[in-house]
Amino acid sequence: MKIDAIKNGIVIDHIDAGKGRKVYELLGLENLDCTVALFKNLPSKKSGKKDVIKIDADIELNFEVLGYIAPEATVNVICDQVIKQKIRPEPPKYLKNVIKCKNPRCITTVEQGIDQIFKLTENGVYRCIYCENSVNK
């Protein structure tokens, strides 16, 4: 599959090399019926290497999740084989039920029915709102 082979769909470009798989998982792309391709270590002028994901359908992407995991990415929306829109995802202020707190002493590990919420701090780190532990991406 090449970029120009997509008629209508989405290309998530310029993902930091090595992060593509994580992006694929967090966006829940394994649940899609359409063709999805994950390219690893493509040559990149900007950073040497990059990962790219192509989705062969015009789906609703979760930009909050993408802004959290790969704020460096560029999303190209393709319509009739031309790039109709270029979108840069923004890191969301809050991240709800996307990742889980890994601190074993956190209340979220035992309390039932609780939302997993992370807050973006001033220095760009996400912290669990309950125990304030930071997330290592």
């Binding site: 601190n103 002493r105 956190c106 209340i107 979220t108 590990t109 035992v110 309390e111 609780i114 669990c128 709102i129 309950y130 125990c131 304030e132 532990n133």
Partner: peptide, 23 residues
């Protein structure tokens, strides 16, 4: 003993919560 338990408590409480230590 769990960190953040008082915040969880404050979300369902109708009265003020004082954290007397959470882990």
């Amino acid at each position: 003993p769990k960190e953040g338990a008082p915040l969880v408590a404050s979300m369902s409480s109708t009265v003020p919560i004082i954290n007397a230590g959470d882990g």
